[in-house]
Design a protein around this nucleic acid. Structure first.
Lengths: 268, 268
DNA sequence: TCCCGGCCTCTTGTATACAAAGTCCCACCG
DNA sequence: CGGTGGGACTTTGTATACAAGAGGCCGGGA
């Protein structure tokens, strides 16, 4: 795999996983050394992150991991509402029903997926990812698909910000079931409404969790609490940059890493 | 200005203006020579174009200008519907009314803007751009704003694909007036509906134009100095002229596109 | 004649060296 | 004591050289 692609996915994963909390400076030389590549492919990776909105230019020309406070979450969900309701609408008109019938049944039985004690809920979110992929295929809109893809990294980051408890996820599974059933039935209006319902419930849950206790990086306790910055936030508010450990096996000789995780597919 | 930024804007403009028609190969060495920069900043520009969807990877690893057929236009408008109705909704809730009252009045008098014989309708589209910018400010959503920004290049490209006649633009001005009035009145429902109406009318017009006459490639009529974009002022004419051919004159030497029309079936 | 394999060439991917520009700090002056 | 200017340093931006991979072409064989 190309070095730029590998570093892009790795950095993206680290940002989504809150291993690189908002405000972290992404210096070119530092990151290049950390990942064992030269600055050229690293710059390409940073450019993609910036285009996605996961990194923004801070003071000077330095790139920092983008902020994610309560206002950002609200705005993110406003965009999700626009894109995902439309995706549900279009998919309802164009989908092959049996795909979504099957997904609906699996969501109906999602309780089994949540029975284990996996804190990351891997199995459940994999199912959500399948629904996303099925919607992508069904709606068959290149442009909408691209916008949604860019969105999903942000959504995944929010998910790590406020972990959902099992009760919430059981509810969410039922909301997803309703979406899948509506799409299978070709009911565009219901599919869009069900998506809106799900998004409102999710947003409510996230905001409640944030209000209850400002949760931070799951790996680094109490690092980034959502700063109460105004809407047109000053981007220069960098949190103290942590000393970053070297990635799992980033040797300077840099043959190849076992390519740890899924390139952050699933969202929602 | 940075070379990568300059080349990015120039290539973007050329693609939007159909000077680089769909299917045109964007070879790195070729374009780097054409713009008098090295491959490094050029690659950055190409990466941004690819992230925006204006260029896609073709056969091999070559980057080509993305396709734009009738299906793409439909998909594009489906995305526009999702994003712009949401933008109108949000702006209605958050806007300062006087801004949009003023815009509504100017759209009401847009006939004067269309009186001249400017084939590019610069004055009119500048007003449309002002409405877009006002909506951007009013909705105050970073994420939605980014998605809309990425969309607008594609929209502009469609605009060059099917030129609107004056009658259509007068109608469109009235549709825009209604949107602005609804936003000023804080009526989110009406604003979204008016946006939907406008988009449907626009799409109808574009598809009719495509059905009537297959793509009049707008490169031939007006060749000189294609800069209708309200992106930013360009005071950067002090760059030292390189020995290599200067792009703005667009001479047919050595560099020009091998096959004008897209080689990969235009109709899906 | 058609298929297959190997080589050659062209294009992209990466590394490194160089240049420029912004920022931060410190000293000096008002 | 505060402001301002200069200078050095750090960081990004650009150019170029090198490497690797894919595609195409040509020759040979069935």
């Amino acid at each position: 795999m190309r070095a730029s692609e590998r570093v892009y996915r790795a950095l993206r994963e680290e940002i989504v996983a809150w291993h690189l909390p908002p405000g972290t400076e992404l210096g070119e030389v530092e990151q290049a050394a950390r990942w064992g590549v030269s600055r050229t492919p690293l710059r390409e990776a940073l450019g993609r992150l910036a285009a996605e909105g996961l990194a923004v230019v801070g003071r000077g020309r330095t790139l920092v991991v983008s902020q994610l406070d309560a206002d950002d979450v609200v705005h993110l969900f406003e965009l999700r509402e626009a894109l995902e309701t439309q995706a549900a609408r279009l998919a309802s008109r164009r989908a092959r029903p049996e795909v979504f019938t099957g997904l609906a049944e699996r969501f109906a039985g999602a309780g089994a997926l949540l029975a284990d004690d996996d804190p990351d809920r891997t199995a459940y979110y994999a199912l959500v990812g399948e629904l996303d992929a099925a919607l992508d295929t069904a709606m068959a809109s290149r442009h909408l698909q691209r916008s949604l893809a860019a969105l999903r990294a942000h959504v995944a980051r929010v998910r790590r910000l406020a972990h959902a408890d099992t009760a919430r996820l059981l509810h969410a599974a039922d909301e997803h079931r309703l979406i899948a059933e509506a799409v299978a039935a070709g009911d565009a209006v219901l599919a869009a409404q069900a998506t809106g319902v799900h998004l409102h419930a999710s947003l409510r849950h996230v905001l409640d969790a944030l209000a209850a206790g400002p949760v931070g990086d799951p790996t680094t306790p109490s690092q980034a609490l959502p700063t109460p910055s105004p809407v047109l936030a000053t981007p220069s508010q960098a949190t103290p940059t942590p000393v970053l450990p070297r990635p799992p096996s980033a040797r300077p000789d840099a043959v190849d890493r076992p390519s740890a995780l899924d390139p952050t597919g699933a969202a929602r």
